[in-house]
Design a protein around this nucleic acid. Structure first.
Lengths: 295, 295
DNA sequence: AGATATTTGCAACAAATAAATCATTTAAAT
DNA sequence: ATTTAAATGATTTATTTGTTGCAAATATCT
């Protein structure tokens, strides 16, 4: 929360060596770090009761190239303070001056890690639980995710088939994916996954399901996603990376959490279902080794 | 923590009535409130990918006198968030006070976050880089992942098709998935994804590819995975969770990192390829460009 | 299809900004 | 008390900022 602790400590350490005006400026900076980050230098100077030039001189006195650097450091501190838990993980390799592949990879993984951590915030958790509850009471759960979101949709459906036979994946060869909705009713729920850019097919099918009275719950990327308006529950998850592509890792994580919550709702039933799946698959020699029993 | 909730809600409420550029600007503002408070308008515009003027227009559209007011409100929110412990205390309380579902969800997400962070260790990063390098030089990249690993395999393949035409997904209807390997040569590489329990189909196909002289690289879950022995490069990623299921989130993250590294190897070519994909998809109206206005 | 709004990109502008420069004051040393 | 050095204030300068006006492009409606 403090602006780049090292800088703060440096100001304190060198305070005694400063001239009167410099001390007055430094004191204000220490006591009002947010202002330094948020308002112009001249305004900070006015608030601190010193000349604008004094702020420049303070920055140089601290060994910085200019006042902008002083502001930048305070801004960075404020940024980190704002988005909570997430930032901590990132702190380590912030300024990767070296552009190696390992650095790129590391930076990206840390970013993803931070995004998952961010999903632990109360708002997200509440949405997760509400969505799981809604899915739990559905007669059938239709799952829809096209293009990049196919991966998430399919994985959710796959896990659900291990748990029972309520899940219907809206996908298939020959463009027949939507046919699953033919007998959809108001007792059913459609889980739809879509991130920007939103596939038209996804939106159309979701609208169709809604027209049929089915409940809609969604995993998407923004409050202003077109899915938000038509969904009874929405789980928001970040998709930004510093690479060319959007990430689906948080969306997959969310999907996995949903599966877990659904499984936990009725443990005995879940164990039964997994046992059945186990038997079935081992009869088919699907796996090189039998599915290990998990409690 | 959010910028003056009323303003935020107003942006969301009026979002549908905005033009495309305005929406893009508004979306960035919603998703990066700290940046709005901390950097100049022109910089925000650059980050959001819109013209500077659009930011001014956004502010006026929202009924504000100018952009400065937009920034001021975000700055005020950030000021509160930073030194007001109140928000965070409230979060902690909310979190601690209640329910099992939220706890399990939170715990699971934190676990996943930690697993991704662990992938940043030097050993893993080296494997990632080596694997990316190997994939880079391949004539064709076959991608194989069955059952639960289908999600990861498909997503990798999907991204690779956006980048070029080297990728072949070994999957398809009617059990013809393996046919892609008919003309595989020693210039090719097979990326195989499999976690315990290992699908026999995966191992057989991988062995077949190896017999044909293709290079094998793999994403798997253990040093003692059957894939390790037949692979030139292996990336290990954790799959443990405290729920009934194994997680594929780390595997997906690894796959995404690989895609990024491959994309970074030749940025200009990547940008060209993405542009082509973009053109193609927009001709097909694959994506909803504007969200239908509601009066 | 043509006509009419609306949206969008570009360039120019005035205002404000941080830094550099110079002049004046203040403190310290001889 | 005079000289010298440092500190402070005022002024100037080159950028950068947010805004506005206008033409091209796009969408919308008869």
């Amino acid at each position: 929360m403090q602006p780049s602790d090292s800088l703060r400590e440096q100001i304190i350490a060198q305070y005694d060596a400063m001239s009167a005006q410099l001390q007055q400026a430094a004191r204000y900076v220490l006591e009002h770090p947010e202002e330094v980050a948020l308002v112009s230098m001249r305004e900070v100077a006015r608030l601190a009761g010193v000349q604008p030039a004094t702020m420049t001189r303070l920055a140089k006195f601290l060994g910085l190239p200019g006042y902008d650097e002083l502001r930048a450091q305070h801004a960075a501190a404020l940024r980190q303070g704002s988005d909570g838990f997430a930032a901590k993980v990132r702190q380590r390799v912030d300024e990767g001056s070296e552009r190696g592949a390992c650095d790129t990879a590391s930076h990206m993984l840390q970013g993803l890690s931070a995004q998952l951590a961010k999903l632990c915030e109360p708002d997200s958790l509440r949405q997760l639980e509400a969505t799981a509850t809604r899915l739990r009471s559905a007669r059938k759960v239709y799952v829809l995710g096209l293009r990049s979101c196919h991966a998430v949709a399919w994985h959710f459906h796959y896990v659900m088939t291990l748990l029972g036979e309520r899940s219907v994946h809206l996908d298939g060869p020959g463009g027949t994916g939507g046919d699953g909705l033919i007998r959809a009713t108001s007792e059913d729920v459609l889980l739809v996954i879509s991130i920007k850019p939103y596939a038209t097919g996804t939106l159309e099918l979701a609208q169709l399901a809604k027209d049929k009275g089915a409940g809609i719950v969604s995993i998407t990327d923004s409050e202003v996603s077109p899915l938000v308006g038509m969904s009874a529950q929405t789980i928001l998850c970040p998709t930004e990376t510093d690479s060319f592509f959007h990430t689906l890792t948080p969306a997959l994580a969310v999907s996995e959490v949903l599966c877990s919550l659904l499984a936990e709702f009725d443990r005995p039933k879940t164990l039964d279902a997994l046992q059945q799946a186990d038997d079935h698959l081992s009869h088919l020699n699907t796996y090189a080794t039998a599915i290990p029993r998990r409690q």
